[in-house]
Design a protein around this nucleic acid. Sequence first.
DNA 1: CCCTAAGTGGGGTGGTACCCCATTTTGATG
DNA 2: CATCAAAATGGGGTACCACCCCACTTAGGG
Lengths: 179, 179
Amino acid sequence: MRADAQRNYDRIVSAASEAIARDGAEASLEAIARSAGVGSATLHRHFPSRWSLMEAVFAERVDCLFDRAEELRDAPEPLDALVRWLREVAAYATTTRGLAAALLNGPPEESSTCQAHLIAAGDSLVRRAVEAGAVRGDVATADLLTLVNAISLAAQQAGPEEAERLVTLMLEGVLVRQG
Amino acid sequence: MRADAQRNYDRIVSAASEAIARDGAEASLEAIARSAGVGSATLHRHFPSRWSLMEAVFAERVDCLFDRAEELRDAPEPLDALVRWLREVAAYATTTRGLAAALLNGPPEESSTCQAHLIAAGDSLVRRAVEAGAVRGDVATADLLTLVNAISLAAQQAGPEEAERLVTLMLEGVLVRQG
DNA sequence: CCCTAAGTGGGGTGGTACCCCATTTTGATG
DNA sequence: CATCAAAATGGGGTACCACCCCACTTAGGG
């Protein structure tokens, strides 16, 4: 990749990051190109679809969550580690407007990179929690992340604390515990 | 309301219903007006915002769920009634593309009519289930509906059976039951 | 230094939401 | 039944969007 192409790529991702934080997942690509000081054609060549741009923007965030999962993997309390990580995922998805929407509503193939990365990160935490007897064995990491993302999407206008409350409710369950 | 205005109103809602079922919540208003045999200005006068049209389209469905709740209110098993009703809500929201999105992502005031109607419908079922000792007392009907809608939205591309699975998971909880 | 291939962005196309206003239609009244 | 003012209508206009074509520019290896 030529140096100028790389420079423009970075500028676009940076501008898109700001625009999405401000306007959500439906931010105008034209405006992003403009604020990056780049023609719209350049943006569309680097990122053929809206989702590919999303993915580039969120890759950094997802990497961060991935690293966080590795940190928590050796925490003393497996359940605590998992719950804490899921809360961080929810917080990221709720505050970074559009992340949840991108992960859930994006075309299957195109949003799978982020999704797969996140699932890989969460998997070890889930497995440890299951082995510790704190989490049901028939729970898939993908399900957990889908639910957390769904909640984040639903609570986007209510705020992060509402999302956290709903995540807790989901983990504990609605039905009374009958042993 | 004049007779012709009423006729056009009905035509628009009918066309919108089809379009949303086919194309989802982002269906083109212009196309809806066209297929209703009506100018776009007429559509925009009757429905100032996209959400107001959504509301009109979904009102029928929501009424149906409301009636269903009343039917189930006197069912012998309160928990069974509640679970069945929530599954029906999920099924409606998943199949009627856009219902979930409309209820969750719509502006607070504009989507509140549907939401309020649904909460009112579910409330009696939740209360009965709580009194029967089957559901936690600190669970709000609104939370339940938010979660069900969130799941529906998340499972929209996966299908109704996936949504049902996730609803069950949410109700039972992810953590192991420790009495 | 030069030349070629990669990269660029202005401008075009076709689509969208939403609004203005001249024209038509309705239905209550004389 | 004829009249007519108010209500309703929709064509056309504006502004914006995603996406694409293609003449021009620039990087960087020989």
